[in-house]
Nucleic acid binder design. Structure first.
Ligand SMILES: [Mn+2]
Ligand SMILES: [Mn+2]
Ligand SMILES: [Zn+2]
Ligand SMILES: [Zn+2]
Lengths: 136, 136
DNA sequence: ACTATATTGCAAATCATCCGCATTGGCGAA
DNA sequence: TTCGCCAATGCGGATGATTTGCAATATAGT
């Protein structure tokens, strides 16, 4: 009936993008990733970075984090886990808290939505920001 | 040592903004609120809306929701509660799930952050979007 | 009422993200 | 291998959301 899915090619920019994302635990933004990748592929375009991150997130090989702050962040770790964000510097880190399965069940009972997922985001002051908190 | 805090004035635009936000349970965006308020204050500027929402959120009399999607949303209900967002239409609603206090304690043990708060956001398909899901 | 200054409306600037398009480059077929 | 199709890229320019600068205005203390 409809045309076959267009093929997805393995391009250098995709490989390197994925490699660089895999190297860090910093949940980089698209721009941060752009800077990282540019050290190896100086001519890559920012649009390519956005397009491919979007594609990979849709495919499910990476995670797009819609956390607080004005920029989206990306994560190579796709196993479910939660995050904590520093309310001062905006840094996002993993937090090793057990996934709450119960909450999805009890939420399902309380809503007529068809629940697809959930995310828990803590916020607080990171150690770095605690030190100089009153300064500046 | 430093100058006293500048006074905060009760302006018409602030009063009406707060009233309009209080009237709805829809977690409006700044632009949606702008449209609502403009019916009563046609000459209000969008900048004023943004500035005051920011101010009120900082003061703690309203909540700024940093949920998924590209726009921030605002909430007059400041008692802790969780939200669910429709992954199709972007609508955000409250979800009546008990606040998980335990998770904050266990998170506190797992991190060196000074935890200030947390938020749980579910995502799923709202009833409206479930119907016509395959259409269009 | 008078004044000091916090706040506004407006417009222009910024920031993140997306898009159109001519050119390039994967990769399956010959 | 080479060839050719068309997915993907680099570019630069749109878009949408939010912020900011500034002269004009309005609140609140005297
Ligand atoms: Mn992570
Ligand atoms: Mn709410
Ligand atoms: Zn920090
Ligand atoms: Zn919906």
């Amino acid at each position: 009936m409809n045309a076959p899915d267009p093929m997805i090619r393995i391009t250098t920019q995709r490989q390197i993008l994925l490699e660089e994302l895999g190297k860090t635990k910093n949940h980089p933004t698209a721009c941060e990733l752009y800077d990282m990748v540019r050290k190896r592929l100086p001519r890559i375009g920012l649009g390519t970075v956005y397009r491919n991150l979007e594609l990979m997130a849709d495919t499910g090989i990476i995670l797009k984090l819609e956390v607080g702050g004005s920029q989206k962040r990306f994560d190579a770790e796709i196993e479910p886990h939660y995050h904590i964000r520093c309310c001062r510097c905006g840094k996002v880190e993993n937090i090793e808290v057990d996934i709450i399965q119960d909450i999805v069940q009890s939420a399902a009972k309380k809503t007529s939505y068809d629940i697809i997922g959930h995310h828990v985001e803590f916020s607080g002051e990171c150690p770095d920001c605690q030190d100089g908190s009153s300064k500046i």
